[in-house]
């Protein structure tokens, strides 16, 4: 091909390449937008996606009332500030009180932050003691942080490898495994039973004693087929 013909062709094709470049960018961003919308639609049908269970407030404060439910992610920080993954705004809870991480074999591992402590089923756990004996919450365990008392409910399917150790192995001790707001031990039978428990989305759950099996996840009516 002669240089003149090539020059004309190359000059003409400049607009073609620019147009294709713009089209590539347009389609890439359209794909991004479509994916974002699809993800939002899917997450609306799976309100508990990314969560391993719930912490039900059995004793709290004015800002964290009895019966409230806190969704528990796979890992994060529990503290009194809103930036924490689990916000527990009660007295005695530090800004960042403890870190937690879920392991399917052992449960929800608890690591108190420096110089902090908490209670797991009545047993005191400090940042020092956890190095020697890691503590983990299983389904039904009670976590005491500051003035708050929270009971863990793990979603069905995640707790299959975990049995509620205290209920099966030491049933007589289960009753005494709670520390009340005043620091005195409280039997589980003496804990106030709530009529209704409000979920994060305002759905009212029926009053129930602690279920023997882990709880079912919530699922929106919309995605009935189960397909994203």
């Amino acid at each position: 091909m002669s240089a003149e013909v090539y020059e004309v062709l190359a000059l003409a094709l400049r607009y073609w390449f620019a147009a294709l470049g713009v089209l590539i960018v347009w389609r890439a961003f359209a794909w991004l937008r479509r994916d974002r919308a699809a993800k939002h639609r899917m997450l609306r049908t799976l309100p508990d996606a990314g969560m391993i269970g719930e912490l039900v407030v059995e004793a709290g404060s004015r800002d964290l009332q009895e019966g409230m439910v806190l969704a528990v992610p796979w890992e994060g920080v529990l503290g009194s500030v809103r930036t924490c993954d689990l916000c527990v705004p009660v007295g005695g809870v530090a800004r960042e009180h403890l870190r937690f991480s879920f392991d399917e074999k052992t449960g929800l591992r608890i690591i108190p932050c420096y110089r902090q402590m908490c209670g797991v089923n009545g047993k005191a756990v400090t940042w020092r003691s956890v190095r020697r004996h890691p503590e983990a919450l299983t389904h039904g365990s009670v976590l005491t942080v500051g003035d708050a008392q929270l009971r863990l409910r793990v979603f069905l399917g995640l707790a299959e490898g975990m049995r509620p150790r205290f209920a099966e192995e030491r049933p007589e001790e289960t009753q005494a495994m709670h520390i009340g707001a005043d620091g005195a031990p409280v039997r589980s039978g003496d804990l106030p039973q709530t009529k209704h428990v409000s979920g994060l989305d305002g759905v009212q759950y029926g009053a129930e004693a602690l279920p023997e099996q882990p709880v079912r996840r919530r699922r929106s009516r919309r995605g009935e087929e189960g397909e994203p």
Binding site: L46, A49, F155, G157, V203, Q204, Y205, R217, R219, G226
Partner: peptide, 18 residues
């Protein structure tokens, strides 16, 4: 994978808890 697992678990477990 995690999202697919969530969808599977939700599908297996059925309706909304009320």
């Amino acid at each position: 994978d995690a999202l697919a697992e969530d969808a599977d678990l939700a599908y297996m477990q059925g309706e909304v808890r009320e």
